[in-house]
Design a protein around this nucleic acid. Structure first.
Lengths: 105, 105
DNA sequence: TACTTGCGTTAGTGTCAACTGACCTATGGT
DNA sequence: ACCATAGGTCAGTTGACACTAACGCAAGTA
């Protein structure tokens, strides 16, 4: 999950992810969208996204088709939502911090 | 805004941010929460968060009190929400990608 | 079998970021 | 004035990472 956020916090990867959000695209089409970067760089970005499970890969002959993994993206979104809305974790941290202030002052 | 996401995509900084989410804390208290890292490192993290406007700093004598900047965090959240919900941007990218497929095949 | 296309992978490079340790600054107390 | 406390800053190291160029490999095609 941490890897997903890290992968997502990269402008180029966010662009790629957006391209394959609602349609499957072969690597060549994705790479062709970026004229300021080599095909190799895009391939490596795709590997990062795949390792983070943010995209899914499907092989069709010599081609590899990519599409966004909406399930994993939903998980990431839930994670972020939890951060904002607080949840149990932050309550625990707050009580610990309060306790620490007592002890040190 | 890109800086905010990048700053947020760092586990340690997310921890710090959570500590000052609903209460103001002096730098020393924040640093004391991390036993595997020096005060210097925490100070630098706080600088990154401040530069990204994710935390606000207030001076009180020799101390510096930090608290989360909820407004800026809301902006970040909105940015992420827009990414998910689509918005105009993605529609533009989709049409461009479709046009490209036509041209190359 | 040979050639081409589609794509991943590897080595090497430059840059950036997280961290430590030493230092500097400012405020407040004695 | 002196000293302690709170905390930022700078130099230097290490490791991660985005990238290029060259190579490797599988799957069609002639």
């Amino acid at each position: 999950m941490d890897a997903a956020l890290k992968a997502f916090a990269e402008p180029r990867r966010r662009e790629i992810l957006r391209l394959v959000w609602s349609q499957e695209l072969p690597a060549a089409h994705i790479a062709a969208r970026f004229d300021d970067v080599t095909r190799s760089a895009v391939s490596q970005h795709l590997a990062v996204l795949r390792d983070a499970a943010l995209v899914l890969e499907r092989r069709d002959g010599t081609r590899r088709l990519y599409r966004a993994n909406h399930e994993e993206m939903a998980k990431l979104r839930d994670f972020l939502d939890d951060y904002w809305t607080g949840s149990l974790e932050r309550l625990r941290d707050l009580s610990e911090a309060a306790q620490q202030m007592k002890g040190s002052h």
